[in-house]
């Protein structure tokens, strides 16, 4: 009874935040609502026992995506103004959104109430997977192939982001030049928080092998730390042509792919023999975390800036 009350309250607030984020003309307000929305959705994930997802949503959904959108808003300025809305187009969007939403609602309530999915299969093979956290087992072992491709999706997005640099900007540092008052609040933030953030990030990566956490969540936290120091004007990002940077970017997916290909000598792909599964997965997770964190930082910063005039 109380539990349902809690769940329903969360959902009502979620829907209100989403509604406020998609309506109205004020983009800043919409982004603020989106960030609160990300926070609430983390709470929702905890209620359905998905701590790993809650971590990812807290770090990425409420965190980095919000920062990315806020940064874009700050740079767009007045360019982000809306033309007048034609009534007809709004109506079409309303009908389409409501129609698809209703169809999905119909499908959800028509699902069998007892579907346990693959929980039993995953738990049965958990020991053979080498790690204790079922979600990590799926991500890095059972469906490691998806994760390998996903780490490359991140890289492709980064190359795409870089590729829209201006012609003269190639070889420069990514993003805009951030500055802050020496000794001011912003700079103190940038000096104080990274220490804590590094510990939390490393802890979450490490915890991922046995409990909730993992490369993506931890990598995001580490990325957040780096972004913070850059926003505070304490350090500047390396040039996009820096050699170590590029090798560090491809190292994670590269090691993962290399280990996967090793299996071909035994006639398989992406196998972790049980004896070495734990160290192999932890090793992959560590290099992957480094590459992911770096990629995320650069994704948020944006393309190389214009060359100084």
């Amino acid at each position: 009874m109380i539990a349902s009350g809690f769940d329903i309250t969360v959902c009502v607030l979620l829907c209100l935040c989403a509604l406020a984020a998609v309506t109205g003309r004020d983009t800043f307000r919409a982004i603020v609502f989106f960030i609160v929305y990300g926070l609430l959705i983390s709470v929702a994930w905890l209620r359905i026992d998905a701590i790993d997802v809650a971590l990812a949503e807290a770090a990425i959904g409420a965190g980095l995506t919000g920062v990315l959108l806020l940064g874009a808003f700050g740079q767009m300025g007045s360019a982000d103004t809306m033309a007048r809305e034609p009534r007809g187009a709004v109506l079409i969007a309303l009908v389409a959104g409501a129609g698809i939403g209703a169809a999905v609602l119909f499908a959800v309530q028509g699902l069998p109430p007892e579907g346990a999915g693959l929980t039993a299969e995953v738990l049965a093979q958990l020991e053979a997977s080498g790690v204790g956290n079922p979600v990590t087992a799926v991500l890095l072992n059972f469906r490691g192939y998806d994760t390998l491709l996903e780490s490359i999706v991140l890289l492709v997005a980064l190359i795409g982001v870089w590729s829209v640099a201006s012609e003269t900007g190639w070889g420069e540092r990514p993003g805009i030049v951030h500055h802050a008052r020496a000794g001011g609040t912003l700079q103190s933030f940038g000096r104080f928080l990274p220490a804590i953030g590094l510990v939390i990030g490393a802890y979450i990566v490490w915890a991922g092998s046995s409990g909730p956490g993992g490369a993506f969540q931890g990598g995001t936290v580490l990325a957040a730390v780096a972004i913070l120091t850059i926003l505070a004007g304490l350090v500047d990002a390396p040039r996009v042509t820096t050699r170590w940077l590029r090798w560090a970017l491809v190292m994670g997916p590269g090691v993962f792919l290399g280990v996967a290909l090793l299996g071909l000598f035994g006639g398989a792909f992406l196998v972790f023999p049980q004896a070495v599964a734990y160290p192999a997965i932890v090793a992959i997770e560590i290099v992957l975390t480094a590459s992911i964190a770096l990629t995320l930082v650069l994704l948020v910063l944006g393309p190389p800036r214009e060359a100084p005039q």
Binding site: I152, L155, I159, R246, L249, V250, P253, G254, L257, L261
Partner: peptide, 9 residues
């Protein structure tokens, strides 16, 4: 994929 990673680095 391997070649793409190489081309990036």
């Amino acid at each position: 994929l391997l070649a793409a990673l190489l081309a990036i680095a």
